[in-house]
């Protein structure tokens, strides 16, 4: 028991606690107020500003990251709750000179306009194609990407990008020809 005063309010509640996050394969030791969300820890304390803050209430998906290979909204979880699990952000996918296939496909198929939702869209698409049952139809792609809003309305390009990467993975030769 690390806390003798079980169930009692704590005057020192606003004091920082040690938090260790493993982001894109690297371990980071931080001291954080327990109120800091995973999203704010990534952006404000670790500089992973590719992950965006949109609604900050789990409705827009701009803050989507992978935790233990699952996509989650990083705004609705505390940093302190995400220790000892691998976290992947958009920075962990590819670099400008070596883009991830989904990043490349978003460029090729006009999957964005202003770009604010894009890293969340891409993280969601990566989870969808690499860690979940692949979507069988465009309808299914739309349904399973519905947790990522795009106010520019780039949806047709997003669906197209995901479909093409899915098809290329199924049939590498045809995928390259397309």
């Amino acid at each position: 028991m690390d806390n003798p005063e079980i169930g009692q309010p704590d005057e020192t509640a606003d004091v920082a606690v040690p938090v260790t996050l493993t982001v894109n394969g690297r371990r980071h030791d931080l001291m954080l107020d327990p109120r800091v969300t995973l999203l704010d820890a990534l952006r404000n304390y670790l500089g992973f500003t590719g992950t965006k803050k949109g609604c900050d209430q789990g409705q827009c998906g701009a803050c989507t990251v992978l935790v233990a290979d699952r996509r989650i909204d990083s705004c609705l979880t505390l940093a302190v709750m995400n220790q000892d699990v691998p976290i992947v952000t958009i920075e962990g996918l590819g670099a400008p000179e070596s883009l991830h296939p989904i990043q490349k496909a978003f460029i090729e198929h006009d999957g964005f306009q202003c770009g604010y939702c894009t890293s969340g869209q891409i993280m969601s698409a990566v989870a969808l194609l690499e860690h979940e049952k692949p979507p069988a139809s465009d309808t299914e792609i739309r349904e399973r990407m519905s947790g990522n809003l795009c106010r520019c309305g780039a949806y047709p390009g997003i669906v197209e990008a995901i479909r093409c990467v899915r098809d290329a993975a199924r049939n590498p030769v045809a995928g390259e020809a397309a």
Binding site: N3, T12, V80
Partner: peptide, 28 residues
């Protein structure tokens, strides 16, 4: 957000003991 103390429970019994009768505590 209001300040709070964060504790990690290790078993259902531990969670219940930490909750006690504190109306201000919440499970997450």
């Amino acid at each position: 957000m209001n300040p709070f103390r964060y504790v990690k429970a290790t078993s259902p019994a531990d969670a219940l003991a930490r909750m006690g009768r504190n109306p201000g505590a919440r499970f997450v």
